[in-house]
């Protein structure tokens, strides 16, 4: 007689099925409560910005706000470009070629956010003539690459495009 054993299996199945349905139900209930904290539609809607760059002189930069974050748009001088391009990749904690960080060598467009803990670095400061973060002492070069200090990576390059010679669209 294998009937009692069979009965046990049926019960196990019901238990397992109930637990599974219960767990899915609880998960489906909790998810909206967690996901409501993610960026909402109105925040996502502000995801692109157009900037007129015709007024920026060589060596100068402007800072614009994109998604609540500062974006540095720097018109680099020939010396700064040469300095950025001449660095050996072996000297970089986060090796990236300058050519890969810009669309036109003259224009450096990057998020002005220190990759350590999110402060805004100061321009034309630090040991590498680029940026210096006053919060915890990270030094960046003229390509926005980390050279010294606690920041782990180079300053981030946002998605951007040249709409025409005088306009950049960020995002």
């Amino acid at each position: 007689m294998d009937k009692p054993e069979k009965k046990g299996n049926r019960r196990d199945f019901i238990f397992t099925a109930s637990y599974t349905v219960g767990a899915i139900g609880i998960g489906a209930t909790i998810w909206p409560l967690i996901d409501q904290m993610n960026p909402d539609s109105s925040v996502k809607a502000l995801a692109s910005t157009e900037v007129d760059i015709s007024q920026i002189e060589p060596g100068k930069s402007v800072t614009v706000l994109w998604r609540g974050k500062p974006v540095f748009i720097k018109r680099r001088t020939q010396e700064e470009i040469a300095e950025a391009q001449s660095v050996s990749l072996d000297d970089l904690p986060h090796p990236e070629k300058d050519q890969d960080r810009v669309k036109k060598p003259e224009w450096l467009v990057m998020l002005g956010i220190c990759t350590h803990l999110g402060c805004v670095p100061l321009s034309d400061k630090g040991e590498y003539n680029g940026w210096f973060c006053p919060c915890h002492g990270s030094h960046y070069d003229t390509s926005g690459r980390i050279r010294k200090g606690p920041a782990p990576t180079n300053m981030e390059i946002p998605k951007y495009a040249f709409v025409d010679d005088n306009t950049i669209k960020i995002g």
Partner: peptide, 13 residues
């Protein structure tokens, strides 16, 4: 971090 902020930086949310 994005989840904590409810955006791409510290802001109203």
């Amino acid at each position: 971090v994005t989840w904590l902020w409810g955006g791409y930086s510290v802001d109203n949310p």
